[in-house]
Amino acid sequence: MLASQEKNTEYEDNTTIETKKTGNSVYKVDQLNLWYGEDQALKNIELDIPEQEVTAIIGPSGCGKSTFIKTLNRLTEMIPSVKTSGGIYYRNQDIFDKKYKVELLRTKVGMVFQQPNPFPKSIYENIVYGPKIHGIKDKKVLDEIVENSLKGAALWEEVKDDLKRNAFGLSGGQQQRLCIARCLAIEPDVLLMDEPTSALDPISTLKIEELVQELKKNYSIIIVTHNMQQAGRISDNTAFFLNGEVVEYDQTDKIFSSPDDKRTEDYISGRFG
C-alpha cells in the first residue's frame, strides 16, 4: 500500500497538467484517433485500464494493437507522419498536454518490445542504463538494483556469475527477460508488453508468462498478443481490436466464454485472424 501511495505522488513539473478523474484506473483512453499520414490506424478508442491487473490486447495483424500500446508511452511520436486526436489520461493526467513531460511518463511506464532489444553492452550495463540516466550514480545502490531487477525478472540465477558478459551472448528468452529486468530497474508503475513472446520458443514463452503472473502483484501490465491462448492464460481483462476499433472489452473469462459480439466469437474460435 505504501508503494501505491508513492505512485500517486506526481512530479512537480507535471502538476499543472489538465486532469480527469480515472478512479483506480492507470489509464483512461478517451476517443483516441490516430493517423499515419492519411491512413487512420486507430478509431475512437475508449478503454479504462485498471491498476495491478493484466490487460491483454488481442486481434489480427494490422488491427492497430501495437500502434495502440505505443501511444500509451507516446513512442508513436518517433514516426513523423503520425497525428493523434482525443485523449489518454495516465493517473488522471492528459499525456498529450503540451506541458506534459514525456520523459517522466516513460520513466513510470516501462516497455518490453516484440524483438528482444538489449543494448550492445554487458548485462550489468543494460540494467543500470535506466537508473544512470535518471541520475543514480551510487555504485552500491546500482549493484543492489541489478540484483533485485534480475531476481524480479527471474534471470538472476542464470547470469549472476557473469554480469560483465555481453548481453548479445544470451539466448532469445534470456534477452527478453533481461529487457524486462531493465524496465524493473527504474521501478515503473506500468509495464507495456508488445507481443513479448512472439520471437521466442515455447519454453521461453512459458517462463515469460509465469513471470507476468508474478509481476502483476507489483505492476499494472498491458500486453499485446496475437496468441489467444496466451491472453486466456495470463490476463484479467481482454480488449479485442479489429481494423483500428475496440470491438469488445471485458473480463477475460467473459470474452472467452460468452462474448457479446459475433466478430469476437469468430476470432476467438479461430474462424479468422
Binding site: M78, L104, R106, T107, N117
Partner: peptide, 14 residues
Amino acid sequence: PAELKQASYAMGAT
C-alpha cells in the same frame, strides 16, 4: 537499429 533507440526512449531517456 531503431529498436535500440526505442528501448532507450521507452526508459525515459532524452
